[in-house]
Design a protein around this nucleic acid. Structure first.
Lengths: 196, 196
DNA sequence: TCCATTTCTTAACATAGGTCAATAACCAGC
DNA sequence: GCTGGTTATTGACCTATGTTAAGAAATGGA
């Protein structure tokens, strides 16, 4: 199972099998059932997850009991809780499994420790984090500037695969609209498409 | 002027003056006038800025000509354009100077190169990036779940200093509302406060 | 000091998207 | 195959925020 993670790393940086052997002893595999809660708001987590198979999510619940999805984490994505990792502080978010999932569990300082043995891991780490920031800036820009319809179209273009895997209300919750609104947006789109 | 940057690094990680000397030759200082454009949408940038003094911003302009502020970068903050840094791709965003600004200009691979000489730079880099992600997740959560008023209150609590330095329409643009709406929100808040 | 420009406020009106409620479609476990 | 619980759709109505427009206040350069 760890082989999948090795493949991922080797696709990203020049890493030999021996080098992977040197750093892989800190890694564990964990499996989650569909619907399993991984982390509650208020708990402290210092783990980093790399998804091998399945789908996790992080989300918040507001004062009215509504769920807002911060991130989907499908295969080959990373998921972690930064309050815990950086400051040993309580999480503002919940983590759970949308599908049955297998993930690599990395200790919070894994990347930095691994980089001491295999320096090129550094480039990977910094690229990944910068890329995550790039994605989030794009998302913030959409939330600031685009209509519900535009955000939905952007979503299905960016994550065609997720669009099929998750229930619509979760997509709505990721887009910052209600399920009812998303349903109407879809109806309008179907209509437009039909008229052409 | 670079001394300020050294101080910043030394506050964050154990870095001696000698070590700083070893890595600082790639650094330059640049000054921007108030209102000066730094990067246009469509241009490619591979620089990273660390703000010593003043205030920069990154923003987008939508199809209706409206401005949306992605990030404010005051003293001790970082600013860069990730499409350029990661992939040599064109920027989706504009960068400019809200105030007259002095900044350190770092080449895109500075942190990784510096880490080869001074390994602890790694921890700093990775903490900074993770912290940026943490902030952005919080912001996304606010955009998904909070009203205009709640977002404004959160903003002034988090950036009391910026609240005074930037015009209201920029705060509105950062919050994802119109200047008119922000004006109403402020009126309501003043009212509530008065009634107490 | 004055003028031009930018910023802020206010009001009347418009609208995207939210709310509530009912129903239909779907599905998972027995 | 039922059955209870999700999930999706639809409609009537509501509300927060956007739009437009005007004027007031603040600001900054000559």
């Amino acid at each position: 199972m760890l082989g999948l993670f090795k493949d991922y790393l080797q696709k990203k940086v020049a890493l030999t099998d021996e080098q992977f052997g040197l750093i892989s002893d800190k890694l564990k595999i964990r499996e989650f059932d569909k619907g399993e809660m991984i982390l509650m708001k208020g708990e402290v987590s210092s783990h980093v997850y790399f998804i091998l198979e399945g789908l996790l999510r992080s989300y918040s619940i507001d004062s009215k009991g509504k769920t807002h999805i911060i991130q989907f984490a499908p295969e080959q994505w990373w998921l972690s809780e930064r309050n815990g990792i950086l400051f040993n502080e309580e999480s503002e978010f919940f983590l759970d499994a949308i599908e049955a999932t297998k993930a690599v569990v990395l200790p919070k300082d894994f990347m930095n420790e691994a980089a001491k043995v295999v320096p090129c891991i550094n480039d990977l780490n910094s690229k990944m984090l910068n890329n995550a920031i790039r994605f989030m800036q794009k998302r913030i820009n959409m939330l600031l500037s685009a209509t519900a319809e535009e955000r939905y179209l952007d979503f299905i273009k960016l994550y065609p695969n997720l669009t099929l895997r998750v229930p619509q209300w979760m997509i709505a919750s990721y887009l910052g609209i209600t399920p009812e609104s998303l349903s109407r947006v879809r109806k309008d789109l179907a209509h437009k498409h039909f008229k052409k």
